[in-house]
Design a protein around this nucleic acid. Structure first.
Lengths: 248, 248
DNA sequence: CGACACCTTGAAGAGGTTCAAGAAATGTGG
DNA sequence: CCACATTTCTTGAACCTCTTCAAGGTGTCG
């Protein structure tokens, strides 16, 4: 009986605390001491749920906060004046979203939920405040931004110099590797995005993405059933990315 | 006579001080008070000259410092395992280089001088230290990193969705706009990089870059004599980037 | 002045796109 | 729970853009 009164309170506490979040090894608290993580809890003022298809923020929205993804999958995309747009990334649990807004105090891309999601809202003023006090947090914030820069370098390499098969292979390996770091399978994944969104990210048309999937299936490298993908031959995919000349 | 003794000393002081740098409106001191800029001078421990063709840092080098470009032009490029590489950016005076190194304490790209250059070395530990004390500097460092993220989004849009002419037009307009912010002409520029380097940046082969330049000349939009480029019709170039459908 | 790097241009070819049609999955309302 | 509408995915064929290969021209630097 007493348990029943206490438990909900504990559950509540656990729910909003970085200290107890199972993503703390991937997310904001990485590298901080127990005491420091407790202070980080003050920063994460609240949570926000974003339904599939809805926007966490949009191009032009005022920038207030960074968001740590708790559950679910996002895409970010930028739009050109003429309407064409480009997916700039797919983000999953533990990743930080919203860094684009810092420079001009307003967001320059849309963040759209690809499934029902929940994020931790971290008002940026408070992140900066706490960064001044906790060196480890300051360094970590810098690392998060630097990591994003390096990730984008990789995408530029992909878009600038790889062919369709190499791009899709790199994409699949990257996805599965990040999922694996979150405790999912090394070889199986469910795509949360359409062929068109994959194509936008990879600089290809959706038909090319579809055809390339079919070719991978023909070659026995993956099994594909709609959005369910199973990687049968990781090495072959990796070879495609790293030594494209050897596997034509 | 006394002047002759004093002047070199002043010159020396002026030479190493952000306070007196004519790039302070573009570079690290942006938005800081006079007193704060004087403290920034402590961070910029020394200068480094990098000759044309030489590297400021290379992929794998330990990361210690950020660099503010004082004079000259750099390219940064990442390399894939198989040797192909991708130019990820061209940097000019007042821009900060080296952000890629923060995340793993080592650089992940090469920074190569495209002409004889000089940079201000800013040990990152000291940048972080001073950021904790000067809120404006902290914010500015965050903005610099965010700006780089946003710039790369733009490159991804370019690489992912534009055709050769649009890419080259966007490239030229971007270059000339940045040069103009530094007091150079709005319409004339000298390319510090080869057609091959432009091509690498834009995801095109050097022949395509050359052909596209020739087409722009035929269309009366620019005049090109080797690396000397004069933009005759800015609007037409801009229209090419923003409304590609209307100008085929 | 000669060697070398860089640039231009042509012609043929490949990779990806476009357009089109149909199949499979998903969601919706009765 | 099923039928229908909608979205998503696959596949084919023609086309187009960019690449590749090749040769010659131009500029630059020791």
């Amino acid at each position: 009986m007493t348990d029943m009164k206490i438990q909900p309170i504990n559950a509540q506490v656990m729910k909003v605390a970085c200290s107890n979040c199972n993503l703390r090894e991937l997310c904001m608290p990485l590298g901080l001491s127990v005491q420091e993580i407790e202070r980080l809890d003050e920063v994460v003022t609240n949570r926000r749920k974003v339904k599939r298809g809805a926007a966490l923020f949009r191009n032009g929205d005022r920038f207030n906060a960074l968001y740590a993804i708790r559950t679910g999958f996002f895409k970010t995309c930028v739009a050109a004046e003429d309407g064409r747009d480009q997916v700039t990334g797919f983000q999953m649990a533990g990743e930080i979203i919203g860094l684009d807004g810092i420079v001009n105090d307003q967001h320059t891309c849309d963040a759209i939920a690809l499934e029902d999601t929940e994020v931790c809202v971290m008002p940026f003023d408070r992140v900066e405040e706490l960064s001044r006090e906790i060196n480890g947090l300051q360094r970590h914030v810098h690392k998060i931004m630097s990591r994003e820069i390096v990730r984008e370098h990789g995408v530029m390499l992909l878009l600038g110099s790889m062919r369709a098969e190499e791009r899709l292979a790199a994409f699949l390996l990257n996805l599965v590797q990040r999922l694996h770091a979150r405790g999912f399978s090394q070889s199986e994944l469910i795509l949360r995005m359409t062929r068109e969104e994959i194509g936008s990210y990879l600089g290809l048309k959706l038909e090319t993405v579809s055809r390339t999937f079919s070719k991978f299936v023909d070659d026995g490298m993956v099994e594909v059933k709609q959005r369910h993908v199973r990687i049968v031959n990781t090495e072959a995919l990796a070879a495609l990315v790293n030594h494209p000349s050897e596997c034509q």
